[in-house]
Amino acid sequence: MDTTTFIIEKGTIIVVVFAITMLMAMYSTWAERKVAAFLQDRVGPNRAGWGGLLQPLADGLKLFTKEEFFPNTPNKFLFILGPGIAMSTALITSAVIPWGDKFHIFGKDVVLQATDLDVSILYIFGVLSIGVYGIMIGAWASNNKYSLMSAVRASSQMISYEVAMGLAIISILMMTGSLSLKEITIQQAEMKWNIFYQPLAFVIFLVCSFAETNRTPFDLAECESELIGGYHTEYSSMKMGFYLFAEYANMFISATILSVVFLGGYNYPGMEWAEQNWGVNIANIIAIAVLFAKICFFIFFYMWIRWTIPRFRYDQLMNLGWKILIPLAVLNIILTGIVMVLFN
């Protein structure tokens, strides 16, 4: 392929994906408040714009114009670095996600994925595992005991649940025989979704992704009743905005991974038929819409859980991770192995 067109093509995809991630994260904050209002029989934000649709913009403006406050810390650089790491790790995961199959533009095929790594899933786990640095470094540099407690909680929680998450995904890899997300998506075409073959792995992965994104019921790192504001106690203005924004970006990304790995990604029944009768482009526009519908469902699910289930206690969290989820994931691997040997 010509280098210039390659750079233009991939650059466009990256910029579009970045914009969409930001937009989704922005409107997740609005949706969260609307869902919370709905579940608690309230109205929710309804002043800025129709149905409060301009609320995220107003919030962003407010955060930008707030005073920047620095705590008395000897590590000013690390204090600024913290939110930056949190935000960038939340954004770079989207590089390996297949948003659709391909478009046919100007007589050539454009693959709707920034890069199809051979080791996509490992890449995601790698980025996930370094995501906690943003919280740890920022909280430690705040020079505040509450923030430090939060950092300690966040890192131990992250490490514990990463193990179960990795073990849960192994059973999927045993079935698909590939670490590439594109390959995994292609194998799920025509309703052969992994959730039907691996329901246990799906449940484990779902629970772990709640813990990895620091969402209720596992948001021990920012438990207000015990730690004031958790790791962002000392942060103000847009630096705090970055932490909050990173959480929503993380939520969007983990919803995407859940839908790609378990719900068939961009596949929908009759995609092949649509491709033959309506053309590649229309079939793939529907595919992208389908993927986003799945993502929105998961984002709603995250919010639904947040406003339904109370926060776990810290020891309960650790017990669930180490004594229930990890043995279950190992059991699932063994079961998958046995079934594969018996029926193939």
């Binding site: 790698g126 370094i130 640095y133 740890m136 490490i159 990463e162």
Partner: peptide, 16 residues
């Protein structure tokens, strides 16, 4: 990737 997951993601986080 394994280097990042194991060293940067697990060992160094525990060390910190």
């Amino acid at each position: 990737m394994v280097h990042i997951i194991v060293y940067a993601g697990a060992i160094m986080v525990l060390l910190l």
